[in-house]
Design a protein around this nucleic acid. Structure first.
Length: 855
DNA sequence: GCAAGGTC
């Protein structure tokens, strides 16, 4: 009997390499029927039985923890409740159909072997895969699910792992579950609360969302900490003693051994002591040989640092470029923490690949000719090998940042196998009277790896002239100069990456995202030299946390939480206990934050402008008939200073007044939203956009949704009619309900369902005998123009049953013969409130009011 | 619209 074995890797590329290794290159290549995942198949032996193997992969996490949809509404959910409401696992956005694909491949399988990355996230994905797959697998006694543990993608390691399969570790996975749930609850709760609080009060924050997160906030705090250091820096005046001497006929400035003094009188005293000295005497000349060590192999974080500091490419962009180089086969997998080459890594093979390059081929050839050095130790984190070139490219094939990053990876690779750079440092001590001075300089002995990483070459312009002990040099000039201490510079991206790594904030893959997030949220800006300068908003937010609860922005917060969660991973603590403890802690912190928000608000007050003092009058409010103000800073919105209400607007597009027309439903003046020069323009009602009058309309989703459509198609083009059931209501066409046209009342919820499959329906000015409005109905199912002999029909909105039958009428009839008072007995039974008994209203008066909206 | 973490 042949058993079926399903194997799953964390990413498609890995499934392919693992299957190739395990099948000794004999696997067939294909794809799963859905989700576009790889599917590799081969035959072999599993646990002593003949087996058919299938190898596929996921794409990172399959599931994500989320709040149920009912909590997605920011207005209807109290952020504080987010600490206690249930959460659920949902299929992750990026992995649509993955669950389905896995399940169909698992059908008929007897065993599952999990080849997910050997880190906590990988362990967690193991269980996501198990949950997806188990229901579809064959049931049989004994262990069916196995975990492969491997530290390098080499034939030896992989085959060893296959021979020594273990079990997935539930505790490790639970520690990740706990972290994911806590991050979600606290991040979303704080973000929603502070966004709503401050955006509801100030008009110039210029940020869509005031976000908070356990990684992004400490990252921001690091930038603000440096900012504070710079702001509070008190420059101090100091004095130095400057001596210029002639050494071998060239003028040289000597360095004072005391460096500087902070008292002018003392400085003058020293000057006085030596100002008559005519010669400096060389007391000692010392030369030492030093080595600048070759770099260790490249990992992600180091790549990002060099890209930012050396190439001026930001971390997010650098990752995008590296990813592209990887997909195109130019470099190895770019997300790794490891800085040690695997034991069996064929260093020479890569050099052979590179030796033809006009840029660094020469250096590669020198190494192949015998100068090859053992790479430095580095750290093996057991994830992926370091980032190395995979094949040779010329700068014709790659351009711009692609070439620059590729060039860096190649040069760095060659450097790791090159000798250290050797140079000598010479220090000369000189006496000028009783004061000691010195000169120091460097001289290159052999460049080693710096011939390829030329920017790391030791400064060679500081070569000291040849001097002998006892030699005397003529002093040309002695003076003191006054200087001031200077503050440190702002953090560079490269500095920040190092600090985040040091504090355990984020991972190699997420560090660029966090930096990007704080930029997107208008908390910091990237300035010259890729320095990160906090904005007013960033500073005020962090200072606010410091006033209310300093913990919230401590750089150590992340590591402290992770440390506790790791106790779950190693079985020393219960998942429920630790998770509950943290949720409870942050819930209390949240309450405290909420109660003391005025401490942060005091800082906002002096830095930002109240909504009532920002913006320009635009259109009239339907409630108070005063002007709403258009707030232009992000998020673009309307604000009524009288009612103190805020109305969201589409974020893309310019908002203008629209013909001073009012929405028939609520009396708000319509505005026009135009997107770009050749983009669309559409009118919308500020109130309806935020409070959709039809339950089928999603709130403000996209620029053509709900009320935009309502105002555009219904209120203006299609017309409105007095309600047939209540006195004050107005019936409005529901634009989303096509082809099942209907009208709905804005007051009594009456729904009048009209005829189906009409091409167009409009409310006309005509009034039926019954007193209700008439409709003009165009019965094309397609959009073709009316043919001769065809015509529009007219009917009454009351007589919907009758209207339905219009479909079967002969062409040419404009009014339904049944459309007579006497025939309506017992009719119109559907729907509620089609109240006949309320007696006739005076539609004409109301119609007059509505005149401006009719076609 | 919100977090952080995988991956594309």
């Amino acid at each position: 009997m042949v058993v079926n074995v399903l194997q799953v890797a964390e990413k498609p590329a890995l499934a392919k390499s693992l299957a190739a290794i395990l099948s000794n290159g004999s696997c067939s290549y294909g794809n799963t029927r859905t989700a576009g995942l790889p599917l590799l198949e081969y035959d072999g032996v599993f646990k002593g039985q003949k087996a058919h193997f299938k190898f596929t992969s996921v794409r990172g996490h399959v599931m994500e923890v989320q709040f149920p949809a009912k909590y997605n509404n920011w207005d209807r959910t109290d952020p504080g409740d987010l600490f206690t409401v249930d959460v659920e696992m949902q299929e992750a956005d990026s992995s649509k159909n993955v669950v389905h694909a896995l399940r169909s491949e698992a059908k008929g399988c007897d065993f599952l072997v999990l080849w997910l990355d050997c880190d906590p996230e990988g362990e967690n994905i193991c269980f996501e895969v198990i949950d997806a797959v188990r229901p579809a697998m064959n049931h049989r006694p004994g262990q069916q699910i196995f975990r492969a543990k491997f530290s390098a993608i080499t034939a030896k390691d992989i085959k060893h792992a296959m021979q020594h399969l273990g079990e997935p570790d539930k505790n490790v996975s639970l520690s990740v579950d706990a972290r994911r749930e806590l991050d979600l609850r606290m991040g979303v709760a704080f973000t929603r609360f502070q966004s709503r609080f401050f955006q509801g009060k100030y008009g110039d924050l210029d940020s869509q969302v005031l976000s908070f997160g356990p990684c992004q906030t400490p990252t921001l705090a690091l930038c603000v900490q440096r900012h504070d250091l710079i702001q509070t820096f008190q420059p101090e005046t100091y004095w130095t003693l400057d001596v210029r001497a002639l050494i071998n006929d060239s003028p040289v400035k000597l360095q004072w051994d005391r460096v500087r003094v902070f008292d002018k009188t003392v400085a003058s005293l020293f000057l006085h002591r030596i100002q008559d000295v005519r010669a400096a005497k060389v007391l000692r000349v010392q030369s030492k040989e030093k080595a600048k060590p070759r770099p260790t192999a490249l990992n992600t974080v180091e790549l990002l640092r060099i890209c930012s500091a050396g190439l001026g490419i930001g971390p997010q962009q650098a990752m995008v470029v590296a990813e592209r180089l990887y997909i195109q086969g130019y470099i190895s997998y770019p997300r790794t923490e490891t800085t040690a080459y695997p034991a069996n890594f064929d260093t020479a093979a890569v050099l052979h690949e590179l030796k033809g390059s006009p840029d660094w081929g020469k250096e590669a050839r020198v190494l192949l000719d015998g100068a090859l050095v053992k790479p430095k130790g580095g750290v093996d984190k057991g994830d992926h090998p370091p980032i190395t070139p995979a094949r040779l490219a010329t700068d014709n094939e790659l351009s711009g940042d692609m070439w620059r990053v590729y060039d860096l990876v190649c040069r760095h690779y060659i450097a790791t196998l090159s000798p250290d750079c050797r140079y000598s440092v010479t220090n000369v001590s000189l006496a000028v009277g009783s004061e000691m001075f010195s000169l120091s300089g460097q001289r290159l002995i052999s460049p080693g790896f710096t011939s390829v990483l030329y920017w790391m070459s030791p400064e060679s312009s500081t070569v000291v002239p040849d001097m002998q002990e006892g030699q005397e040099c003529i002093i040309k000039n002695v003076s003191i100069s006054e200087k001031q201490t200077a503050p440190p510079g702002y953090l560079t991206e490269s500095d920040l990456i190092s600090l985040m790594e040091k504090h355990g904030i984020g991972t190699d893959a997420s560090i660029p995202k966090h930096i990007n997030t704080i930029c997107e949220r208008n908390y910091v800006t990237v300035q010259g030299g890729r320095t990160l300068v906090p904005t007013n908003l960033g500073v005020v937010v962090v200072h606010g946390y410091q006033r209310i609860d300093h913990d919230l922005c401590l750089p150590t917060m992340r590591a402290a939480v992770e440390k506790q969660f790791s106790l779950i991973a190693c079985g020393q603590a219960e998942y429920e206990d630790v998770l509950f403890y943290f949720i409870d802690t942050y819930k209390r912190k949240f309450k405290f934050f909420e109660q003391n928000i005025q401490l942060m608000d005091e800082l906002f007050e002096v830095n930002f402008t109240l909504l009532s003092k920002t913006g320009k009058n635009l259109c009239r409010c339907g409630k108070c008939n005063r002007y709403l103000k258009l707030i232009i800073a992000k998020p673009q919105r309307l604000y009524c200073p009288t009612c103190d209400d805020t109305y969201s607007l589409p974020q893309r597009g310019k908002i203008m007044l629209y013909k001073e027309l009012k929405c028939p439903l609520d009396g708000f003046e319509l505005v026009m939203c135009s997107t770009g020069s050749n983009g669309k323009a559409f009118p919308l009602c500020p109130y309806c956009y935020n409070n959709p009058p039809f339950e089928s309309m999603p709130k403000g989703s996209g620029c053509n949704a709900c009320v935009n459509a309502l105002c555009k198609h219904s209120a203006i083009n299609l017309g409105v009619a007095p309600c047939v059931s209540c006195d004050g209501g107005i019936l409005v066409m529901d634009p989303v309900s096509k082809p099942k046209w209907r009208l709905a009342c804005n007051q009594c919820n009456t729904i009048v369902t009209l005829i189906e499959n009409a091409h167009d329906i409009r409310v006309t000015k005509n009034v039926c005998e019954c007193g209700a409005s008439q409709l003009s109905v165009d019965f094309h199912k397609d959009k073709s123009p009316l043919k001769s002999g065809e015509t529009k029909y007219e009917g009454c909105i009351f007589c919907d049953e009758l209207l339905s039958s219009l479909v079967s009428l002969k062409h040419g009839s404009t009014t339904h013969p049944m459309h007579r008072r006497g025939r309506r007995k017992g009719g119109r039974g559907r729907g509620r409130g089609r109240g006949r008994g309320r007696g006739r209203r005076k539609p004409k008066d109301k119609m007059a009011q509505l005149d401006q909206f009719f076609i």
